[in-house]
């Protein structure tokens, strides 16, 4: 049954909230087991980072949407944190199966990984509330829901809030989509559009970590032979 843009947005929101049924923005007992298996227990740092990034997010949300909307920002962040922990657990299960390891100390103590994952979860929450639209991306905007003031929060807003390089954010996108099969088609498409904007533009900004990697790879010298041009 065709839906109006507002109804579609409300359905997406209900579904997102329904999928996050734990009602808690804290790590599950399964996730705590992964933390305990680490050579260096990351629990303290993870909790501290989520709290700090939460305060930053709520402040910037209020700046963008209106100071009277701080409570709304808190709700958005709460949903985002739930999704972050949910996807983290799913990713770790998947990595455990793929790599046959249980000790993810390096990954779970990696700040860029956590910031990227949290940013991606929040991007999903924000995009769900405003409809899948990109700011200035030339990809067109969905009507209805995206006319709200929250449309100012569209990608790449979250990158500036967390001072997160687009190149790092890019690294979690595919794994996020794999780890969260309940993501709606629109949301997958939105994340795919974020990938394209990063690949085409954001990853090539002056301060991108991509340039250090390119420099490093040049210093290491030619490795494998380049693939011959495809026919």
């Amino acid at each position: 049954v065709p839906q109006t843009p507002i109804r579609a947005a409300m359905t997406s929101i209900q579904q997102l909230r329904g999928d996050l049924t734990s009602g808690s923005d804290q790590p599950s007992s399964n996730l705590l087991v992964y933390y305990k298996n680490c050579t260096v227990d990351p629990s303290g740092e993870i909790k501290k980072r989520v709290e700090e990034l939460g305060e930053v997010f709520i402040q910037r949300f209020a700046q963008a949407v209106g100071q009277h909307c701080e409570g709304l920002g808190r709700k958005r962040f709460y949903l985002g944190a739930q999704l972050y922990y949910k996807v983290m657990e799913s990713m770790l299960k998947s990595e455990e199966k793929r790599l046959s390891v249980q000790n993810f100390s390096k990954l779970l103590n990696n700040a860029a990984f956590h910031t990227s994952l949290l940013a991606c979860a929040l991007e999903v929450v924000i995009a769900t509330y405003v409809g899948s639209s990109l700011k200035n991306g030339g990809f067109g905007r969905s009507s209805g829901a995206s006319d709200s003031v929250e449309s100012d929060l569209c990608f790449p807003w979250i990158l500036s809030v967390f001072q997160l390089p687009a190149f790092d954010f890019y690294k979690v996108i595919e794994s996020f989509i794999k780890a969260e099969p309940t993501l709606k088609h629109d949301m997958v498409k939105h994340l795919e559009q974020c990938e394209h904007v990063i690949m085409e533009s954001l990853a090539w900004r002056t301060d991108s970590p991509l340039f250090d990697l390119l420099k490093q790879s040049r210093e290491e010298g030619p490795g494998e032979q380049a693939e011959p041009p495809a026919t």
Binding site: M91, S94, E95, R98, L99, F104, K106, L107, N110, A112, F113, K171, V172, E174, S175, I177, K178, P181, L183, H185, V188, K189, E192
Partner: peptide
């Protein structure tokens, strides 16, 4: 997740992407 192009190979995941393998 239909229509999304999954490009990562079996030996590629967040552990490798964040240099944590």
């Amino acid at each position: 997740s239909q229509d999304y192009h999954f490009g990562l190979e079996d030996h590629e995941g967040v552990s490798e992407l964040f240099d944590c393998d």
